[in-house]
Amino acid sequence: MTTLVLDAHDISRIIGTVGRDAVMDRVIDALDTAFTALAHGTGGSTPARGGFTRQAHGEGCLEWMPHHEPGSSVTIKTVAYSPGNPAHCALPTILGTVARFDDITGRLTALADGVVLTAIRTGAASAVASRLLARPDSGVVGLIGAGAQAVTQLHALSRVFDIREVLVHDVNPGHLATFPQRVGFLGLDVRAAAAADVVASADILCTATSVEVGAGPVFDDVDLREHLHVNAIGADLPGKTELPRSLLTRAFVCTDHVEQALREGECQQLGADGIGARLPQLCADPATAHAQRARTTVFDSTGFALEDHVALDVLLELATELGLGTGLDIEYHPVDALEVYPPLAAGDRLAPATAG
């Protein structure tokens, strides 16, 4: 029995063949369905991620994120956040790998790149939350942070809103300069602007920054539209936050995973009493979300493994449709389950050790 491996080339072939929009649409729809099932008690279980902080040209982390579908499968993503990667190593800030195991046997059934998957599912989750909480006529998107995650945030929002204008700000001039080209496939009007102008004009605001622990917020709570919806995705370490506390205290705040949000999300600044709802609850009861659209709303997105599980499902389905992926004998499956060592071919036998 082999393990299906989707490498970087396979992911590229899937997106190139099916199209960016079609892949994003499938993940958005699949997440909405999975969140609703979770609210109804049939979506499996996702404990908070574990991990440790590390020095990675600045403070970073390496985490493991498990999701369990009883009787079916276990999905585990390992993901590293290394803010110095683009400048020092020519690598993405976020690197990851996703593994799928059979729940009955524990056999490794699939292994896939997690870099593209993480970016797509994070954007898709923001689209699900924004579709529920933002005004349907929202046409101006603001972005604080113009790195890789900002691309899929904007892409996902473009699939559920008629966007007229995009304003973007980043403290890194290089990121800001290349952003219009990186999102050129969307055909949107994208302009660089000061942070204050971005937040003052936005109907929907996405914050996706590498702000250091204790250095936030990344914008001031002034001149914001009363109906502003914020997708805050950058907080992923204890002490790291992007939003002003004053905005959070007056807003309707929803989270994807409460335990994570209280430990390392924007809700560090609020506590459990400040959380209005979980995103799965709103997916199951959209009317509750729609009632909040006239006020400030926040999606505190820390990202949880159900999202990775769902995104992997989509990629595996597409790989099967397209005949992509490589089957590898990664695990040792002996004919005799009690045999520890693989049998050696005649030419592989080692000469006996001699005393010297």
Score class of each variant (00 low, 15 high):
residue 180 P to K: 05
residue 140 V to L: 05
residue 123 G to D: 04
residue 104 I to D: 14
residue 275 I to C: 00
residue 339 E to P: 14
residue 144 I to E: 00
residue 148 A to Y: 13
residue 245 R to T: 11
residue 105 T to E: 02
residue 219 F to V: 06
residue 324 L to A: 01
residue 353 A to C: 13
residue 208 A to K: 03
residue 296 T to P: 15
residue 100 R to K: 07
residue 1 M to F: 13
residue 83 P to T: 02
residue 345 A to R: 10
residue 115 V to R: 12
residue 33 T to L: 12
residue 43 G to E: 04
residue 316 L to S: 02
residue 32 D to N: 10
residue 304 F to L: 03
residue 89 C to E: 14
residue 126 S to M: 09
residue 57 H to P: 15
residue 66 P to A: 00
residue 146 A to V: 02
residue 182 R to N: 01
residue 48 A to M: 13
residue 322 L to F: 12
residue 211 V to M: 01
residue 171 V to H: 04
residue 254 C to S: 06
residue 334 P to F: 02
residue 245 R to F: 10
residue 59 E to L: 14
residue 103 D to W: 07
residue 49 R to F: 11
residue 162 D to K: 08
residue 273 D to W: 05
residue 211 V to K: 00
residue 16 G to S: 06
residue 240 K to N: 05
residue 229 H to E: 04
residue 205 L to R: 02
residue 98 V to F: 04
residue 272 A to N: 03
residue 200 A to W: 10
residue 208 A to V: 13
residue 212 E to F: 10
residue 356 G to Y: 14
residue 324 L to R: 02
residue 113 D to S: 05
residue 133 L to S: 08
residue 81 Y to G: 06
residue 337 A to F: 15
residue 254 C to M: 06
residue 326 T to Q: 11
residue 150 A to W: 02
residue 23 V to C: 03
residue 68 H to A: 10
residue 62 L to D: 14
residue 124 A to H: 09
residue 138 S to W: 03
residue 286 P to C: 07
residue 266 E to Q: 01
residue 12 S to N: 10
residue 214 G to N: 04
residue 45 S to F: 14
residue 305 A to N: 07
residue 182 R to S: 02
residue 333 H to K: 12
residue 87 A to M: 08
residue 340 V to Q: 11
residue 10 D to W: 08
residue 91 L to T: 15
residue 317 E to C: 01
residue 2 T to C: 10
residue 314 V to Q: 00
residue 136 P to L: 04
residue 55 Q to T: 15
residue 313 D to E: 11
residue 77 K to E: 00
residue 351 A to R: 14
residue 355 A to S: 15
residue 179 F to N: 06
residue 288 T to I: 13
residue 118 T to M: 03
residue 202 A to V: 09
residue 182 R to G: 02
residue 327 G to E: 05
residue 227 H to C: 03
residue 92 P to K: 00
residue 295 R to M: 13
residue 210 S to Q: 11
residue 22 A to E: 12
residue 352 P to A: 08
residue 36 T to I: 10
residue 278 R to C: 14
residue 158 S to E: 04
residue 16 G to L: 02
residue 111 L to Y: 00
residue 204 I to C: 04
residue 167 L to Y: 11
residue 212 E to P: 14
residue 206 C to N: 05
residue 158 S to L: 03
residue 347 G to S: 03
residue 201 S to Q: 11
residue 301 S to E: 13
